[in-house]
Design a binder for these strands. Structure first.
Lengths: 196, 196, 196, 196
DNA sequence: CCGTAAGCGAGACGGTACGTCCCGTCTTGAG
DNA sequence: CTCAAGACGGGACGTACCGTCTCGCTTACGG
């Protein structure tokens, strides 16, 4: 029915206006109060223009989220693995605990539980990229026998990020710097080379 | 306008019929296809009767979920802490990875990200009860100096459950028995008493 | 299912309290805002007690209406037929045009269009009684050759009451004393004995 | 929240489909069994589309009624005023007494008693148009001194239509051709020029 | 003078229509 | 020819009432 749109003809300002409108509305009202109608109206754009380039509300919102989050990553200053893990854990806390960005991350991950396409997009564009650099560092450390080699790097990443996300999503206890540091320390303890 | 209903006058069969209908419909169609109308119709009940006792769909469904999950907990055979942790991790995998129950848990936790009241209910009636017995065991072990005492028991629980839930929700890697055992082992390693 | 209730055990105050509550609520809010729940609550009575003695809302309300209207009929002072007709027309205007009673009469007659049982009740307990005394006077006048005898008395009554009700219900023009007198005069003209 | 819709963008077939569905359902089931959901479903239309263009059920149904009634008016053959009045009275009986159209007219007029906006619409689009041509004829006759000039034309119209509607709504006696002719004759008698 | 059956206040219940909201698709008219 | 504006089919929502039913309590009459 609908020919695939020609991306080269896409208007750059319109694209950004939609993302901005989506993020503004999202930040102001949260996921549930957000409607595609409102995004379009706020962006001064026809609804069809939104649906031409994104599949659905989740799709736009996730891109708007990425667009925002992109700006937030500070450059790493870590010099060794412990530093790096700690820095990542602390960044997580700083960026997502108690911030609009964190609230949106929670909402998006929530929606993804019932929306496989969003889930796939989040894995590919959010979780995996963030894990990749750390995974490389872990593999390096294993190669250099700085940490145990009998544990899958991905499992180690889960040991670090799992508790942080778990608390973020369940809210049973605060996600603060102290917690970040505890998790980092425990993870490091868990993967320390066995005493010889 | 509407006085709070009197729970003592609640019809017992009706209550159960609604939970059963909710669960049946949920299992058959999933969260999104589920409507309060259908729950009511399937239970042979007026829609208002649902809304009299539950605030919304999420509320009913969570109670139906609890009602189902209650039956599934096998008695523990664990004799020491490592056993207990491993048993819990394996139970998690068995009960929630790739089962309808797990799919519902994911959906509910997802919805809870945009529904603070459901979030609160899940904390109180789902997460905390499951953590409590383990927390007691951890505190015991700390008292008896079997594990490190300088780490908060809740943090240890997050180290165990965090990774499991994280994978369940993000789906970036399988949640299987191997993973359960890895996480258990790493957690135990992390909290082992320092070599003296 | 339900045995017919024993009227001798009916509580007199309760009966009146319900009628009063119905009328009070009706006067305050009009037919549509009126619910049996509210009548019962206002009367301090169980809903079932209402349904025990009346078939439905229309039934109660009509009795409440009759109960009110009963008090309003002034004694007739008319001495001849023209006087009597004029008095009736003027009473109609005074009692029903622009009064709560009139608004309720309109509403009830409106509801009766879709409720044959109410229609029947209104004919029997409202319209016919009011027509009867006038009909007798008309028949008398015909016997005494004061008016034409070749016209059905009921038709004459309709000639008098029809226009009044018609305006009351359609509201296309005011229902005032002037109109009442015009209709009376025209009716009298219509039934005057032919000039010999 | 909702801007007023732009009538020029209204889909013509949809409009008619809704009116047809409303009338069909109305004829088949009567006012009370009629629901907006069913109208929409039968018209193959979203419920919102109904509510976009009509305020409520009464609004749609009245337009559907007008749409039907429009087709039913036979051309007049009357040559003088008596003829014209008689023709109108007989048409009333033929079209509304004992016909679906009449039943709907009764129901609508009934509902209008509790719905001022419908009442206004009926006055403007139903009663007044039908009175206008007759009123003109009456004024003509008065100018030509064929009938009394001291009586308001509207009052004369009420004298003719009042009794017909009154019987239609109260049902205390048949609305038949005989009655139509009686009322016509009496009305003519009432407005005849005084014998000089 | 007591038991038993009815009336009663209270309100939960099955059922049904309402009118609103949003989704994602389709249509139109102005630039 | 594009695209803002928004009408459209579809469908869930949560509310309101209807008239029935169920629960204890209280009242009054008959054994």
């Amino acid at each position: 029915m609908m020919n695939p749109p020609d991306p080269s003809r896409r208007k750059r300002e319109t694209h950004q206006a939609i993302l901005d409108a989506a993020w503004a509305a999202l930040e102001a009202e949260g996921w549930d109060a957000l409607t595609v109608d409102r995004i379009a109206a706020r962006a001064g754009v026809g609804k069809q223009t939104v649906y031409r380039w994104w599949r659905d509300k989740a799709d736009v919102v996730f891109e708007a989220f990425l667009d925002q989050a992109r700006a937030q990553v500070p450059p790493s200053r870590a010099r060794d693995l412990p530093d790096l893990l700690r820095e990542n854990a602390r960044n997580f806390v700083r960026l997502y605990a108690g911030t609009p960005l964190g609230a949106r991350l929670r909402e998006l991950l929530g929606v993804a539980q019932r929306d496989p396409r969003l889930a796939e997009a989040m894995r590919e564009h959010w979780f995996l990229p963030r894990r990749d650099s750390l995974r490389r560092a872990l593999l390096d450390a294993q190669d250099n026998q700085l940490i145990r080699s009998d544990v899958d790097a991905d499992t180690i990443l889960d040991l670090l990020f799992g508790p942080l996300h778990y608390r973020l999503l369940t809210g049973h206890a605060p996600v603060d710097r102290r917690f970040a540091d505890s998790v980092t320390a425990l993870t490091l303890a868990a993967i320390a080379r066995e005493a010889v």
